Simulated assay, not measured.
Amino acid sequence: MDALLDNALLISVFVTMLRSATPLLLSSIGELAIQRAGIWNLGVEGTMLSAAFAAYAVVVATGSLPLATVAAVLVGALVGALTSMLTVALKLDQFVTGLAINLVASGLTLYLFRSNHAVFSAGNFTGFAPVAVPFLADIPVIGRIFFQQRLPTYLALALIPLAWFFLHRTRQGLELRVLGENPKVLQTRGIAVAPRLWLIIVAGSGLTGLGGAFLVLGLSDRFIPEITAGRGWLVVVALVAGNWSLFGTITAVFAFAALQAIASHAQVLNLPVPYQFLLALPYIASLATLMIFRSRSGQPAHLGLRDIGK
Rank of each mutant, 00 (worst) to 15 (best):
G232I: 01
L32R: 08
A266L: 00
G212V: 02
V60W: 02
L82A: 11
F223Q: 06
F14L: 12
N182D: 15
T97S: 05
I262T: 07
L26E: 14
L65Y: 04
I284K: 01
K310T: 15
I201Y: 03
G180C: 06
E175M: 11
N102F: 02
A158R: 15
I11E: 15
F120A: 04
M1K: 12
F146T: 05
G212A: 06
V193P: 08
G30L: 00
I200K: 08
G43W: 06
G63W: 05
I284S: 08
E45R: 00
G173Y: 11
L303M: 09
G211T: 00
A266E: 13
G180L: 05
T69V: 06
A241K: 01
A105P: 00
G248I: 02
K310R: 03
I201T: 13
P152S: 13
I308F: 05
F165R: 03
P161D: 13
A72N: 03
S121N: 06
F53I: 06
T22H: 11
A77P: 12
L10H: 13
P195A: 07
Q148F: 13
A118P: 00
F125S: 09
P225S: 14
L103F: 11
V119L: 05
W40M: 15
E181I: 00
E31N: 12
L9P: 03
L159D: 14
I250F: 07
S205K: 00
L65H: 05
G206V: 04
A156C: 08
W233Q: 08
N124C: 02
L32F: 02
A280I: 14
R114Q: 11
A105D: 08
A68E: 11
N270F: 01
V59D: 03
A132S: 13
G98H: 02
G309E: 06
P161I: 04
V193D: 11
V253Y: 05
M291H: 13
D307T: 02
G242R: 12
I145V: 15
L199W: 11
A68H: 07
I39Y: 01
G232P: 08
W40T: 12
R169Q: 15
F128M: 05
A252N: 05
T228V: 15
P300M: 04
S295F: 13
G206L: 03
L108G: 04
W164T: 06
L110S: 14
F247A: 09
G127Q: 10
A158G: 15
F120S: 03
G143F: 06
W198D: 03
G173P: 06
I145M: 01
A156M: 09
L155M: 05
L167N: 11
L179I: 03
P274M: 13
L186S: 10
V59P: 01
I224L: 14
Q276S: 10
V178K: 01
A194D: 11
V273N: 15
Q149G: 08
F277K: 03
P66C: 07
V202A: 13
L167R: 12
H168R: 10
E181R: 04
A258I: 13
M17N: 07
S12C: 01
Q94N: 11
G38Q: 08
A55N: 09
A238F: 09
L305K: 12
N182C: 06
S106H: 05
V44R: 02
A238C: 10
F120K: 00
N41A: 10
L90Y: 04
L207H: 04
L210Q: 03
V253C: 07
S50R: 07
P66W: 08
S205C: 14
S50H: 07
L65W: 04
L24N: 14
W233F: 15
R306W: 12
G46D: 12
G173H: 08
L25N: 09
